[in-house]
Amino acid sequence: MTTATTSDLAPAVASLLQDDLLAVADTKLVLGNWYTECVMNGRSLPDFATLLGMCTASFGQTRAIYRYLTNFGHDFGALERGRDAGAIRSMELLDEAPVGWEDFLAAVWLGELASWMLLSGFLHNPDRQLAGLAKKVGQESYFHLKYTDGWMRIIGEGAAERATFLRMVEKRLPFALRWFGPAEAADPLHTAGQRDMPIGKIREAFLREIGKAASLVGAPLPTARPASFETSWRPDARRHGPIPAGLWEVVRFKDQELAF
């Protein structure tokens, strides 16, 4: 069996592929930091271990994708520590700190689901290394999403909590949708045989998954349209502008004299 590698790609396609992978990797980096910041807000003893496990896995996924990107000539250390707030490509959905447990769950759920859906588009990528990476992330995402499923069931049993949760989903969902981009009919990565299906289809599948949560929450989930795209939209980063200064202060690696 022949295995395609990154060096076989046309430069424009390779560049788009790297953009998407970096957007997922940086989103996982920010998610990992969300778990780090919020673990002590956990609501049961086994949840502390669970949130730390999700934290570990998220950083692990970032590391795995950065490593994969070295196939394109990137330097791992430069990806990890050589970029400033303007170069981090995390989901705008995660910019704003959660204001409570329901908001935390809404954001983490949407962030985990959207990033997994995007990566799932590479499950059959001609480069088996990338396909394997997507599969591995999928196996981990399964548990992360099961965690939010379990909590949605609990939230669904409380009227006030459910209302708060739905409000938070409504607030964050437009940003999750915008992350998939304007989703024009033509997807160059799909056309080039790199993405299993056009990104527009992935976004539709994402919305369908959101809808399915109604059975967990016991109420229909809000339907939303993507937040509008400003002229400052950076298609390569799937976001506008740099990540907020406060979040950057959390995310940036400290104590650089110890880096190895």
Binding site: G32, L45, L52, C55, T56, F59, Y66, R81, D255
Partner: peptide, 21 residues
């Protein structure tokens, strides 16, 4: 975990904490 110099270190601390809990 917050003050670790790189991903490797963050992962190590987070995973050890996960074990402890």
């Amino acid at each position: 975990i917050k003050n670790s110099p790189n991903l490797e270190a963050k992962i190590a601390v987070a995973s050890a904490c996960q074990d402890e809990l």
